[in-house]
Design a protein around this nucleic acid. Structure first.
Lengths: 336, 336
DNA sequence: TTGAAAGCGCTAACAT
DNA sequence: ATGTTAGCGCTTTCAA
């Protein structure tokens, strides 16, 4: 951009002069100060001057002077790979704005050096606090620098610590997914879990078992498979599933479901007729457009971001344990 | 977060006192000032004090005092729906950091009111300039408030104006996609274009035609179809394509290709054996995991973001026309 | 080689 | 009801 914006921004001083009042008066009307007894005429003159001059308060000067910043930092590890981080940012921003805060975002691609630089930058900008988020639910170790300010872990947690954290309720999610199948009348339900050890791997399995138990269906370990959590994994797993006489399958995530669909169609199976399937994540691009559209359970990224801000800004959490955000079902057409 | 960070941050004054020098001296060593002749001993005492006290410069005070902010605003219209906006942010941030700038991000979901609030917020924070981005290439009308500062349109442009803009080279992209097919020996190439009027719709068609022309293949309008640019559109379009005796098909985007794959498999066709296909966008979750993996042309979002920053920070553009960023081919396995 | 001092734009007592 | 003034933490002449 080459255009010249030479004109220095209008200052409060100039407004004061134009309105024939002091800067204190201007400050008061600009901020609608409670205890401020300003005459209606002066008030109006100030308003007019503001309008005429196109005055914009300098938020940085305000911060410096008042000693309270309106920045909240958000460090994300993978803003560019999935829409997940974007949803966290979205939720965090909406909630932050409600409280008068503005988001300072930094992407680190998981690089510790970048992470440190980002936190340093945020600290130097006097952030009110920092949200440290990951694109998939996992354990992390809190960067030392983070402890210099208030912070909340989002979609991650620190093992064996009371570091404030907000994470998805994997157990409830796994239970919900399984219940969807059970409610449709299925009794032999395979579960293709991921091969990657993670809270999702553990939690969803616990949820699966608890749903079976609640429905008085015996848990059969043979029905639980493990596969890489992508399309290729789902594709390869289908044949094994067919071996099990299962009438339904719960896929660890939507990507696996997508691969499984491919193999199912290849083998001439129809979904949900021959096999009911439920996914996890609610990854729109995929789930909403599979044939048939995939019933799944949503990962509540938007809510994670929003809850993270709330927690940062005071929402107390006596338990000392991560706050669990529910994973709601998203009904489409892959279950009958 | 409830933990108390009562301790006021360490100021330059305190460092100065601890080191037995003046703040001016501290300022000089902190900023590695060129013309500053500071004794090695004083310099060292300052460094030690900084370390001991854990001093962090206050970036806001610095901005206020020096009069030059290190913020750049980035307003995005759909951070949460695709990874596209995320890639723009990523590219913009990397480039901004290189120049010592930090990103102030705001998501607006296309809401004009939110947009206005975002720009106002950025202006009040004394941003050096603003990147105004959209998640898909289109014409926009520049919000008035934007003109109060330097700005660059990213992945969008203003029709009939010289507003600085950076957009993907749709024509080259369309040509590249088509060339991929031609180079593999195809002569009858169908093009399923989108039904939505857009620079992509126009540009890719122009590119398609130019590639044909360069290869001395007559342009046959019957080979060009229009369909909704999603999986459903691609699925439905396949039957028509088969009608055309085409041996290859260029899909307007990867999502269409995904739907087309489904229908092709349903009809027992194999890709690329019976039909070669090339997509557009390089939407990882899809393209990299289709069976077979989809050869496509990438939308250079990361580069758009980075180029936007460069343009903002001085990269002049005499032409007054949008800067075109190339769309590179991504070879996978759907062409034979 | 170093320090004093005047701001940057604003807020918040404290006067008047 | 409104103005004065002393900072907030830092940069930057200008002196010493």
């Amino acid at each position: 951009m080459s255009s010249e914006h030479a004109r220095q921004p209008v200052t409060m001083r100039e407004v004061a002069d134009a309105a024939g009042v002091s800067v204190a008066t201007v400050s008061h009307v600009v901020n609608n100060k409670e205890g401020a007894r300003i005459g209606e005429d002066a008030r109006q003159r100030v308003r007019d001057a503001i309008h005429e001059l196109g005055y914009r308060p300098n938020a940085l000067a305000k911060t410096l002077s008042s000693g309270t910043s309106n920045f909240i930092g958000l460090v994300a590890d993978a803003i560019a790979t999935t829409p997940f981080a974007g949803q966290i940012i979205h939720g965090a921003q909406d909630e932050a704005w409600k409280h008068g805060y503005v988001l300072l975002v930094a992407n680190t691609e998981g690089d510790p050096a970048a992470e440190d630089a980002a936190i340093t930058m945020m600290l130097e900008h006097q952030v009110r606090g920092i949200l440290y988020s990951t694109w998939f639910h996992r354990a992390v170790t809190v960067p030392e620098a983070l402890r210099e300010t208030d912070y909340v872990l989002v979609d991650c947690y620190e093992a064996g610590s009371t570091a404030p954290a907000v994470v998805p309720d994997e157990v409830q999610g796994g239970r919900t997914a399984t219940e969807l199948l059970i409610q449709a009348g299925h009794r032999t339900i395979a579960f293709i879990n991921t091969t990657s050890p993670s809270p999702a791997q553990e939690g969803r399995l616990v949820g699966y078992r608890s749903a079976l138990e609640a429905a008085a269906i015996a848990y059969d370990p043979d029905l639980v498979l493990n596969a890489p959590s992508d399309q290729e994994g789902g594709y390869a797993a289908l044949d094994h599933v067919l071996t099990l006489d299962a009438t339904a399958v719960f896929c660890h995530n939507d990507r696996m479901a997508m691969g499984l669909y491919d193999r199912a169609h290849e083998r001439g199976l129809t979904i949900p007729g021959d096999l009911a399937v439920v996914g996890f994540d609610n990854q729109e691009v995929i789930a909403a457009h599979l044939r048939p559209p995939l019933t799944t359970v949503a990962l509540p990224h938007y809510e994670l971001g929003a809850a993270g801000i709330r927690r940062l800004l005071g929402d107390p959490n006596p338990s000392g344990k991560p706050i669990l955000i529910p994973c709601p079902p998203v009904i489409r057409a892959s279950i009958a």
